[in-house]
Every structure is written in C-alpha cells, then in structure tokens.
Amino acid sequence: MVMSHAPAFLSGFFLGLSLIVAIGAQNAFILRQGLLRQHVFVLCFICALSDAVLIAAGVAGLGTLIATSPRLIAIVTIGGAAFLFTYAVIAFRRALNPQAMVAANTGEGSLRAAIAACLAFTFLNPHVYLDTVVLLGSLSAQFEGAGRLAYGVGACIGSFVWFFALGYGARLLQPVFARPSAWRVLDVLIGLVMAAIGVSLLGSL
C-alpha cells in the first residue's frame, strides 16, 4: 500500500520531520535525557507514539474540531505556558550547579518522573496539537483513501525516526558534556527555549 502511494508517504514523512526537528520543549527534554542516558528508549517511544496518535487523529478529521474550539485551545495554552515557565526556572537553577549533572551521569533518575515530564511536554504544549492534529491533519485532505493513510504512516514514521535519532545520537556529544560548563550552557539554553515558547504561547491568546 505504502509503496504504491510513495508520493503521499514521502510527503507525510518529510513534512512530519520538518515540523518536529525544530528545537522545542520535547526535543530539548529528549536531548538532555539522551545525554544522561536515562530511560532513553521509553521516553523516545512515548514521544513518537504520542505524535503518531495525534497525527492519526488529525488525518481522521479531529483537526477541524479542535480548530473550531477557541476555549479548549486557550485552556491548553495557559496550562502549557505555566508548565514551560516552571521548567525554565528549574533549568536555570540547574545551571547554577552543573557539577550535580555531571555526577548524575552515573545515576538513574526516576522513571515515573521522567514519564510524567515527557507526557507534560507533549500534551501541555498547544504547538503539538497545531502541528500534528491541525496542520498535518488538514494537509492530508489533498489525498484520498489509501493515499491519505500512506501520508499518515509517513508522518508517523518520521516522528519515530527523529526522536530515536535524537535520543540515542545525543550520546555522541557526551565527551563535550564531561565538563560542568557544558551542562551550564545546555541548561541555560533549555531554560531560554522553554521561556520563549511559554511567552509565544501567551502571546498567541
């Protein structure tokens, strides 16, 4: 099915990649966990599977429903901004004590806490819904039947490829992050990214 609808599959694959490759809350979180080598497979799988579920919902037509519910979008936006500001503060505080993160390379963080944070970064960020459900979903209208299914499959595979490449590829940077100063820079950047996304969310209301 996919091979006979290669243009639709490739369209979904590359469009999906183009939307999630940009630095965002999910990507910053996965990058950091990858550097720490903590629960990488589980967290990458959760992010990719969540995207796949949202993409499937969008291709099935849910995007139109969400786009017509300003109140729902506003609620998710405010909650997401509050969460991102909180995590930005946590990242800035970590930047003040980067030695703790170097030591944490040999430790194991709580899986439950990591999963909770991963789900929050995914479902409390309205950009996730706009990118996967609304945008990818609406663009699937250019295809019909099996072509639309191939498009959705391509977008889902793109998400899986990206998150696992980011999570496991991050360890290639570990020699750089053997120094506390590198962790300080990373956490400052993560804090800035989270705060910027939070501001942009509130500005969109």
Rank of each mutant, 00 (worst) to 15 (best):
I66P: 07
A48T: 12
A91S: 09
L135T: 13
V40C: 05
L72Q: 10
L15E: 06
A150D: 08
L17P: 07
A155H: 05
S18Q: 14
L202P: 05
R94F: 00
L15H: 09
L96G: 10
L124P: 02
T106K: 10
M101L: 15
I190G: 04
G109E: 02
A141T: 15
L130Y: 02
N125P: 02
V128F: 02
E108K: 10
A88M: 01
T132M: 15
V21P: 04
V134R: 13
C44G: 05
V59A: 13
A48Q: 09
I20Y: 05
A88W: 02
L31A: 15
F177N: 00
P175R: 10
S69F: 03
V199T: 14
Y129I: 12
V161H: 08
V102F: 01
S159Y: 03
S200Q: 14
S200W: 08
C156F: 05
G12M: 06
T106H: 07
I90C: 04
I55V: 13
V176S: 01
R37T: 02
H5N: 08
A114L: 03
G145H: 13
L31I: 13
V199K: 11
S204V: 05
M3I: 12
A25I: 14
I30M: 13
V133W: 00
A120N: 14
F160I: 03
V89N: 04
G34L: 04
R93V: 10
G158I: 07
V188N: 04
L149A: 14
T86V: 06
M101F: 03
L84N: 06
F92P: 05
R37I: 01
P180K: 01
V134C: 11
H39P: 08
T86E: 01
T86D: 00
P180Q: 01
V42W: 00
L139F: 11
G154M: 13
H5R: 03
L62M: 15
A91C: 12
G80C: 06
P175Q: 06
A170G: 04
P175F: 06
A182C: 09
G154Q: 13
S200R: 14
S11I: 02
I115D: 02
A81T: 10
A67G: 15
V193T: 14
V133S: 01
L130D: 00
Q38P: 04
R171M: 06
L124F: 14
A195Q: 11
V176G: 00
C118L: 04
P98G: 10
V185K: 00
G63I: 02
L172M: 12
Q99V: 07
N125E: 00
L149F: 12
A165W: 05
L49P: 08
F13E: 12
F85Y: 13
V176K: 02
G169P: 07
S204G: 11
M3K: 08
S159W: 03
A60W: 11
G158M: 06
L111A: 15
R37S: 07
F83A: 07
G167I: 11
F163W: 10
A165I: 10
C44S: 11
L139C: 02
